[in-house]
Write a protein that binds this DNA or RNA. Structure first.
Length: 339
DNA sequence: AAAACTTACAACCGCCCCTTA
DNA sequence: GTAAGGGGCGGTTGTAAGTTT
């Protein structure tokens, strides 16, 4: 029979989103909330299909997204969760606040997969690669001679959502998993691994730093920290750079002008005291705002201790709890109504 | 300096599942 | 019970940016 496509695609734009399109989408959702995705493009004045809008929003524009590389901790969580759940990226993502399934999937394919293979572990089965199926370089017997994998330990891992077994029956929230404890080969890596093992053995997802409402900051013009003219905007591989494809901050500024005053504050990414090392300014780009971005980068990478409560109360002068409501209420958060 | 190659990730595609009429 | 609509999900592709030759 076949399904109708989600849209006819005739006259619709595809490819990378422009700042203007982002602005329209953000503006619409902040004003009206998420409703029927199919209707959003028309209502928001976008020549995109609803699906494209939904993906853009959920994977890129959502204010509660963390950006930047996954931390070592998150990476290990992904590995463990993948060992139990397989390629169910959305389930895995639901245990990593601020991360999207797409992001995790990409990270898995580009980083973790290779890492595991390099370590002699099959990323599909999480078991040591069979000597009968040699790695692609055909020259890695040392890895196999000394198996880079320890017998899995049974650990308690609490998922944020119950998982279902093959009979589709919901199991207990706390399930028994086989932790993919991994042993590195080199000495340095071995030391690193000792740490890793501790992390893997010790953590449960309850310990994941969740983004609490009080940890979410709002930003308006007067929230900008003092700029440092000496900061360079360049970033190195060891730092997180707060940059996107274009200057989305300009979008933000325009929104300030176009939205009612009550709407004139909106939430930042997960910029909080426990998590901001991963903060990558989901809604702010780099170009003209280099100074601000580099300042943030400097603060973030210098482990600058920022007490968000103090920051919000004394610097921002904003009632965080009020504003966080609209962020945390997925269904119908409407800035104007809730502020 | 430029071409070739590699990497990372945003975006798309098509299938699946759930809801509704 | 069933067909259609809508959204979610996982796999794949396109391409910009980075690196190597």
């Amino acid at each position: 029979m076949g399904r109708q496509p989600c849209c006819d695609k005739v006259g619709l734009k595809q490819g990378p989103w422009t700042a203007d399109e982002d602005k329209k989408l953000i503006n619409f959702i902040l004003t009206n909330g998420q409703c029927c995705w199919r209707a959003i493009p028309k209502l928001a004045g976008l020549l995109r299909c609803g699906k494209s809008c939904r993906l853009r929003w959920t994977n890129y524009l959502r204010p509660d997204l963390k950006r930047g590389l996954l931390s070592e901790y998150e990476e290990k969580m992904v590995i463990d969760l993948h060992a139990q759940l397989g390629n169910r990226w959305s389930k895995i993502a639901s245990n990593l606040p601020g991360r999207t399934d797409n992001e995790i999937k990409n990270h898995w394919n580009t980083h973790i997969k290779k890492k595991l293979k390099k370590m002699g572990i099959d990323p599909l089965t999480h078991k040591p690669l069979s000597p009968l199926t040699p790695p692609t370089d055909h020259q890695s017997p040392p890895l196999l001679a000394q198996p880079a994998y320890e017998a899995p330990q049974t650990e308690k891992l609490t998922l944020r959502e119950p998982i279902e077994d093959q009979n589709n029956e919901t199991t207990n929230e706390t399930i028994s998993v086989q932790s993919s404890t991994i042993t590195e080969v080199s000495k340095d890596e071995h030391e690193e691994d000792e740490q890793s093992k501790r992390i893997v053995v010790d953590f449960c997802t309850d310990e994941v730093p969740l983004i609490e409402p009080h940890e979410i900051l709002l930003r308006s013009e007067n929230m900008l920290p003092p700029l440092s003219s000496s900061c360079s905007s360049s970033s190195t591989s060891s730092t997180y750079d707060i940059s996107t494809n274009y200057n989305i901050n300009l979008v933000h500024e325009e929104l300030h002008q176009s939205l009612p005053s009550a709407d004139n504050q909106w939430c930042s990414s997960s910029f909080n005291s426990t998590n901001y090392n991963n903060f990558n300014g989901g809604l702010w780009g780099d170009d003209e705002d280099d100074e601000f971005i580099s300042t943030l980068n400097m603060l973030i990478n210098d482990q600058y201790e920022l007490d968000t409560a103090i920051y919000s109360d004394t610097i921002l002068g904003t009632d965080i709890t009020e504003c966080s409501k609209m962020l945390m209420c997925d269904d119908d958060w409407k800035l104007g109504q809730q502020l």
